[in-house]
Nucleic acid binder design. Structure first.
Lengths: 344, 344
DNA sequence: TTGAAAGCGCTAACAG
DNA sequence: CTGTTAGCGCTTTCAA
């Protein structure tokens, strides 16, 4: 609770000197330096970062906006961001927007007013213009999401269309034709993209598009459960399901089991995200992996580059980093046996 | 980027008036208020919270220290805390200590210097004295963890001894005698307590204590996997396993399957925590539920009480809130059938 | 190598 | 109801 003035007085020097031993110790004589350091310890002094930030216009804090902390995807991103933030001596302010536009806006302006030094926004619900409006010129923002959506921001991008395409194509290769899709919430571009990939794969393979095979769910286990209940009422039943997230797939799997439908024998299932749990349900879930941890790392690196380089606002080339989704084949789709069976 | 002074000038009033429309609008005439508000909008003014915090000695931010953001337990606590923080108009600063004493200390002092208004610490590695040493007198801290361990802090507590006891007793009731235990990391009191509960249950039931039946693991799926590999080398094999966390139990289950051991027919399994995934592995995991979300809520409420009541440091009665663990019976231990079989 | 002093942007007496 | 003014704790010219 002691402040710099008390330390100065006690040490018989000026506050400037005390400040110097904190910030530019090389410019102060060893003798006084030691003296001051001693007094600091004695008085249990530690600088007030608020005041420091006010004077320096720097807070050594960055923020990360995530839509849902309960979705295991985001803690993993957060971990990636934190790893590099901590390495740079920065603090991470984690904000949970709960997929609420208002909350996202609130947090964002709060952060800008709190003068964080930088900010990473994941799967934002806001338009680039909305973000820009809230953004202070001095605070770089990097976006994790779709870049074409966010001109003017550094951006880490994953091609969900391709992801959806990959998942669906895989199912098609395995010989399934009547493939259902449990889509994510419409208001997320990620969901729409996955669905688009799904459609694209069907079309390119000359399979009919059937909208009754598409149901929407939010990103929750329970929601996947319900979706399957709906899908099972269809006749004929789908032969395979592409779920827009592993969480949903896990719920779907649960429903399938409840209904006594064997996976993959009767219905095959692909998830999306490759969350850890995907490998521990039964059957282990085939899924499309998103390099989440790396997304966090990369976004953070981009941010620090921008923060150190300054100049983010000037029409400088914005970086887009494209992290590729990758199919992880496990047991939930049928595999070699199934392939053989189909093609023989 | 405009500041209060510019607004004042532009509006032809004093800074005090501008400040007033921000903080005590009731004391300013409607006319000037509107006028000022208009200018604010025109200049895109928003107050600098750093300066505000400096002047008010208040930041409208609380912090939450968690040991591991990747463990699904903690996001749930965070959610609880955030719910009430947001309701009070506060920001939540989430800090991941990675179960590292140094990092925990660093974060804690960082936070104190940043002048958060309050702080919640979960399963701390620090002693009460260490925490107190870092704590600024004005900043209330509430602890989620063992209260006897933390005299002098408000505290939300769960009785892990009882939890371990409950889990083990349940296994014993079902007729298992040779019960193994996969303990959590020794350096966490939670782990030690669960293990103590395990021992207590054995003793009270007149079962022999056999230390070869106890193996240590950290709180990771992989670690549970390895632990089971070890346990399976024992002969005779254990009939049941009490795992110190669901994560570990899930890893254990995976290993058991890999080894072709049927659960619960050949080996029964109980987990701990009741994370969501416990209900989606096969067999669904019997476990001991910790009311995590409620822990977060409660801790936050305690914190806000303390913050508003002031006076936390004075030897005022510290609240201890005891949230009870609860057995959740699912399929991984054998159930009615098994009971009948055993008792007939 | 050091000190005096002018801010950083805001709030809160106090006096009108 | 409004303005003047003195800080909040720290950093950084500028002079010495």
């Amino acid at each position: 609770m002691a402040n710099i003035r008390e330390v100065a007085k006690e040490a018989g020097v000026s506050v400037a000197t005390v400040s110097r031993v904190l910030n530019h110790p090389e410019f102060v004589s060893p003798a006084t330096k030691e003296q001051v350091l001693a007094i600091m310890k004695e008085l249990d002094f530690s600088p007030n970062n608020l005041a420091r930030g006010l004077a320096l216009n720097k807070t050594y804090t960055i923020a990360l906006l995530i839509p849902n902390i309960m979705n295991p995807l985001y803690p993993e991103i957060a971990k990636g961001v934190e790893d590099v933030a901590h390495k740079h001596g920065y603090n991470l302010l984690l904000c949970n927007t709960e997929q609420d536009r208002k909350k996202e806006k609130d947090y964002l302006s709060l952060l800008m007013n709190r003068k964080v030094d930088g900010c990473i926004v994941t799967s934002s619900l806001l338009s680039p213009d909305e973000i820009r409006e809230i953004q202070k010129e001095t605070v770089p923002i990097v976006v994790i999401g779709r870049c074409q959506n966010n001109p003017g921001f550094h951006c880490v991008f994953t091609d969900y269309i391709k992801g959806g395409f990959t998942a669906t194509s895989y199912l098609i290769e395995l010989g399934y034709a009547r493939i259902a899709h449990i889509g994510g919430p419409e208001f997320l571009y990620e969901s729409r993209d996955k669905t688009e990939g799904y459609r694209k794969a069907l079309i390119e393979n000359g399979l009919p598009l059937d909208d009754t095979l598409i149901v929407e769910a939010d990103n929750e286990i329970e929601s996947g459960y319900l979706a399957v209940k709906k899908l099972l009422r269809l006749s004929p039943r789908p032969e395979a399901i592409f779920a827009s997230s592993d969480l949903v797939a896990i719920g779907a799997l649960d429903a399938l089991k409840t209904e006594g439908v064997k996976v993959p024998e009767e219905i095959a299932l692909v998830g999306f995200d490759n969350i850890k749990m995907a490998a521990f349900v039964e059957p282990k879930l085939t899924t499309v992996a998103i390099p989440v941890h790396r997304m966090g790392l990369t976004a953070a690196r981009l941010l620090f580059d921008a923060m150190e380089g300054g100049d983010t606002t000037r029409g400088r080339p914005f970086q887009e980093i494209d992290l590729k989704p990758k199919l992880i084949v496990r047991k939930s789709c049928g595999h070699e046996d199934r392939i053989r069976e189909i093609f023989s």
